Amino acid sequence: MRPDERRLRRLELVVTRRLDGLLHGSYLGLLPGLGSEPAGSREYRPAEDEVRRMDWAVTARTTVPHVRTVDADRELATWVLVDASASMDFGTADLEKRELAVAAVAAVGFLTLGNGNRLGAQMITPEGTRRFPARTGRAPLMGLLRALAETPRVDGTASLADGLAAVRLARTGLVVVVSDFLDGLHEDGLGDRPPEWERPLRRLAARHQVLAVQVGDPREQELPDVGILTLVDPETGLRREVPTASRRLRERYAAAAARQQASIAAAVRRSGAAHLRLRTDRDWIADIVRHVHARRRLSRAAIKRGRTA
């Protein structure tokens, strides 16, 4: 068995064992959300409900604003958009961001497959976009993970905005975007203009459930004190020597990185997508579990409120 194959088998074992409690029980999916099967209506709650879910017929009949309630779908299509740009080939902790992206896709696959659900993917690279048709079952998922893991590393940029705009689903489904979201930021993400990928992400979220999985590395947030450090931009090749012994420089770097991350989080929030942050120095499975449990608690609470309204 090849080393890459052994790594994928270990990844499968780790994911299925750690996520075993989430893979059983009532069907709620990775992002329990609106679904599409009608299940009635309830009164509209400002700041909780989306206007696009308004049930205008019931609202007109009762003169009280109501929203539609729906049951969770079966046989959904989950589409994964994976960023394979050169900025993902970076990691200073347990693994690289690219490897963390593959792990995230594995978790998404094992959490969403079943009940006839299909999983497809689109990978954006500096050389273009590679598309994997949506299929059911373990074998296609393992094939997808193998293709992602074996994708050649190429210098250059890849447009996340273009990749988002190219996602097309015939029916309402789940779209998972796995990226560091560093592409398309204006003035290093510190300006007032929104990122280039915000508008296409918002368009996707208007029709589908969207989960933005942001992968990062601790060195993107703060610099260590290691003397003169040569930094290279993997997408442009720009090199710069940085005197990390300067405390002022490290503080300025950390402050700029924090503003950049806040800008990304704000753009994801404005788009209406759910936001999951994973880091190469953290227990990424535990972060996914916490995220899924939190989303399911919110979903159950909303269903309970709807039944008692």
Rank of each mutant, 00 (worst) to 15 (best):
M1N: 06
R2G: 11
D4L: 14
E5P: 00
R9K: 06
R10N: 03
L11S: 03
D20Y: 05
S26Q: 13
L28K: 09
L31C: 14
G33H: 14
G35C: 05
G35Y: 08
G35S: 07
E37M: 12
E43V: 11
P46L: 00
E48Y: 09
R52D: 07
R53N: 14
W56C: 01
V64K: 10
P65T: 00
V67Y: 04
D71A: 15
D73H: 05
D73K: 06
E75M: 02
L76N: 05
V80T: 00
L81Y: 04
A84W: 02
S87D: 14
A104L: 12
A104Q: 14
A106G: 00
A107T: 05
F110R: 03
L113A: 12
N115T: 02
A121F: 00
M123P: 08
T125L: 02
T125N: 06
P126D: 02
G128E: 10
G128T: 10
T129D: 13
T129E: 15
R131W: 05
P133C: 01
A147W: 12
A149N: 10
E150L: 15
T151G: 06
L160R: 08
A161F: 15
A166K: 09
A166N: 08
R168M: 04
R168C: 01
R168F: 03
L169Q: 14
A170L: 08
L174A: 02
D180N: 12
F181S: 13
L182I: 13
D183P: 05
G184R: 09
L185R: 09
P194F: 04
P195V: 12
E196D: 15
L201N: 07
V213Y: 12
G216Y: 04
D217Y: 12
R219K: 03
E220Q: 14
D225E: 11
D233G: 02
E235K: 07
E235V: 10
R240C: 05
R240S: 12
V242Y: 03
A245V: 04
R250E: 06
E251R: 14
A254F: 07
A257Y: 09
V268Y: 10
S271R: 08
H275N: 11
R277Q: 10
L278Q: 01
D281K: 04
D281C: 01
D283Y: 05
I285M: 13
I285G: 08
I288V: 15
V289E: 15
V292H: 02
H293F: 03
R296A: 01
R297F: 01
L298E: 03
R300E: 07
I303N: 06
